[in-house]
Design a protein around this nucleic acid. Structure first.
Lengths: 208, 208
DNA sequence: CATTATTGTGAAACCTTATTCACATTGTAA
DNA sequence: TTACAATGTGAATAAGGTTTCACAATAATG
């Protein structure tokens, strides 16, 4: 036996991290017990000393992704006081983060695409909502400072904010890294921020 | 033998359509030869009379999705002359279309998530680009009529346009149909259109 | 040092799927 | 009607994946 023995709580972290790497490099299809084990230098059956099933490993991945995503939000906030500038910085940081960690996007979206158990779908949904709540909070502060239109619903604005990131990242993935995600997102941001800060127009034919 | 014999070109369409339904109901995981066959009332092996492999069936699904998506664009265009109103109408129609056909989203995104062959990833990328080209053309016309800011790159605006749809649809999927996609998209559209039509600001420290 | 719980290994048991093949049935054309 | 090509069927094959299990090696504990 060549492989060194390691405490199970350490192994769990290793396995979750390795699994995320596997998803990044081989996609959701390639996420197999054997691939994860190989990445740590273990034999497939060894993983069952630390997790009861592949399902629990996926749970661990989700926990890891959740940490990373939300931690990244907080990290991004502490750079600027201006609310709109904060949002812009958050966007840039997140883009870089997602491009640097291709597994995250795949994990988050996998449950929307693959059709796993309703329980895990709900779990991912909650994760995304937690992220959106943070963004909505930023929008709310911007409104109270008068930098953002007061007629917007912060939660809806947060969804729109997410829309600046998503297509750029998806296209980047689909193109195999060719698509200029940063440039596309930058333009989207310009449109977004112009609409975000503008005072609401008098609707031409609105309902009185 | 109970099942009636049907010409192979007809069967191909049936199989592609059935496969798309299977993806819609059971997700990408559940897309299995047996499931497709059952949906038409055939035995699994019968599918190989009409396709050489599951891979070719997926190709057929992609063709179907491509038709539906692009056809829908054209259908949406012929409703209004005003360019901005056209975009808005296109957005509404597409949202309804995607919600009515949950398989489409899953097929388009699956290659970004799953990690299939580079060939099919490129195929899906081309599909999305074709869609974006149509939207970009709409933006271009809006610019030439003076309804849309002339400083925007139409292709980038098209990507931003896609961003109005994507998060709403993804959240709708993740929430199991609970998330109010239409409302979220409507708000995003308001922000987008405000930013789209605004005359470009004098940049404070711009390059002259 | 001796004992014991923990961790790693290799083989095997299954399960699910895609795919093949010989044969049955049906539509079609001569 | 008869012969032939096209389509459907059921069983078998093969491959890949998860999971179990008896056993080996190691770390920890007394």
């Amino acid at each position: 036996m060549r492989t060194q023995k390691v405490a199970t709580n350490v192994r769990r972290s290793q396995i979750a991290a390795a699994a995320l790497e596997v998803v990044a490099s081989r996609g959701w299809q390639g996420l197999t017990i054997a691939a994860i084990a190989a990445k740590i230098g273990l034999v497939p059956s060894a993983l069952y000393r630390h997790f009861q099933s592949k399902d629990q490993i996926i749970d661990a991945i989700l926990g890891l992704v959740r940490e990373q995503l939300l931690g990244n939000v907080r990290l991004a906030v502490g750079e600027t006081p201006d609310p709109v500038a904060r949002l812009q910085r958050l966007l840039q940081l997140h883009l870089r983060f997602i491009l640097d960690h291709p597994g995250v996007l795949r994990v988050v979206f996998s449950e929307a695409i693959m059709g796993g158990s309703p329980a895990r779908r709900a779990q991912v949904y909650e994760l995304v909502q937690a992220y959106l709540r943070e963004v909505a909070e930023l929008v709310r502060r911007g409104q109270s400072q008068g930098a953002i239109r007061p007629d917007l619903v912060p939660e809806a604005a947060a969804v729109a904010f997410l829309g600046l990131l998503q297509p750029a990242v998806i296209l980047w993935h689909l193109s195999g890294g060719e698509f200029a995600a940063a440039a596309a997102m930058e333009q989207a941001w310009q449109i977004f921020t112009a609409g975000l800060t503008r005072k609401p127009e008098q609707p031409k034919g609105g309902q009185p």
